[in-house]
Amino acid sequence: MRRFLLIAATALALSGSARAVTPDEQLPDPKLEARARALSQELRCLVCQNQSIDDSAAPLAHDLRVILRERIAAGDTDKQAVDYLVRRYGDFVLLRPPFQADTWALWLGPVAVLLLGGAGVALYMRGRSRTAESPLTAADEAAAAQLMMRDEGD
């Protein structure tokens, strides 16, 4: 049933009927408002699950946007304002997961794949190019082409 509720909430959010930031939420100071907008794009709407609170029309997302703006207006740094919500909802609210023990694979994975893959490619290339680097004579080339054709022909 709760599941149903969430899906219904999602559908509501999707329909875009009352989307996101409303005029009365905005802070008068454009600098602070810009900070609040930037932060709310990195915070997850809990009910709709896959939108930022900046994008979501859910009532809870509205509340969280208002809280965020209150914290910022009260002089919180960005980190303090975000931590305020993390203390209540956990790391789950962060669309940018923190770099910590359980997420190092997530953050370093892409670079690791690139480096390991790069090492693999380098090894493979060394194997591939052993003879290719030594200049071939025209006769060698023709013989190679002949071989290739035979290969491709069958």
Binding site: Q41, E42, R44, N50, S52, G90, D91, F92, V93, L94, L95, R96, P97, D102, T103, L106, W107, P110
Partner: peptide
């Protein structure tokens, strides 16, 4: 642990 991965992650990796 429950974590979320959203657009800011891809902006910094992808």
């Amino acid at each position: 642990d429950k974590i979320s991965v959203g657009p800011p992650y891809y902006a910094r990796t992808f």
